[in-house]
Amino acid sequence: MKRAAPYIMLLPVFILVCMLLVSLADSVLQSLGYFPAAGLTSFTFAYYKEVLGSLALRDSLLYSLYLSLVSALLSVALGVALSALLHASARAEALVYRLPIAMPHIVVAFLVIALLSQTGLLARLAYALGLIGEPGAFPLLTQDKAGAGVIAAYVFKQAPYVMSVVVLLMRRVSSTCGEAARVLGASPRKAFFYVTLPLCMPAVSTAFIIVFAYSFGAYELPFLLGATLPRAFPVQAYTEFLSPSLLHRPYAMVYNALMLLFGVIFIALYLVAFKRLMRYNKAVYA
């Protein structure tokens, strides 16, 4: 009975985990051509070959990697800067990150349209300042190839998240080791860049991985704010999935399996980063 106790306590979680694993295995099987519902029962790598050789895959993958990399780097930079400036006051930090975290992505998408589109508030401001004469003269910032709108929306959502992850550790580090560096004569800038920030890096890297993984896999923002072509990877995958022919399903599942592969890499990286974070945490507490 004693040995069974943790399993009983975890039973609902186990059931949900099994559902998750079954659904993922199903995606992989279908990508390999095993899809009895459509009469496909033989395993083959043919779908992989075809999808991996396609331009649609290459373009969407590169576009998504670009979008997530740029938005993750900007979010982390801004999030760390905000923590550095505001970690001394708990009230200030709450002000910054509560509201954006409560705002769903679709609302943020609308805000980006209202602010950055060619008839948005910024364009009107540019007109009032005499910089442009008509909406078309304002640079295209939403549904654009460079993905400025998508990136802006992600940074708005993610920088406060990064801050919420980093700020707790930073407060502890800067009041101990950072303070020690200051007492020993380091300038505030040196104490931050040579002591506090390096010691916070484990938290920063876990935040980076989470933020990158999220924007790599999410559908809403590139769907509402991204360019029609190239399509972001999730949008391309879902478009393939929506194909009415069941015989097309394995192609969609190749996209899915590739995304899952990325997910597994993200999890492995996170576990490594998290281990380091725990070690640092112990050192900082001690």
């Binding site: 995606s27 896999g217 559908y219 990877f233 899915n256 997910g263 993200f266």
Partner: peptide, 14 residues
């Protein structure tokens, strides 16, 4: 950490 679109498509089929 799993790309949510892949996660959701999997759940949809299940």
């Amino acid at each position: 950490l799993l790309p949510s679109t892949a996660f959701f498509i999997g759940l949809q089929t299940l």
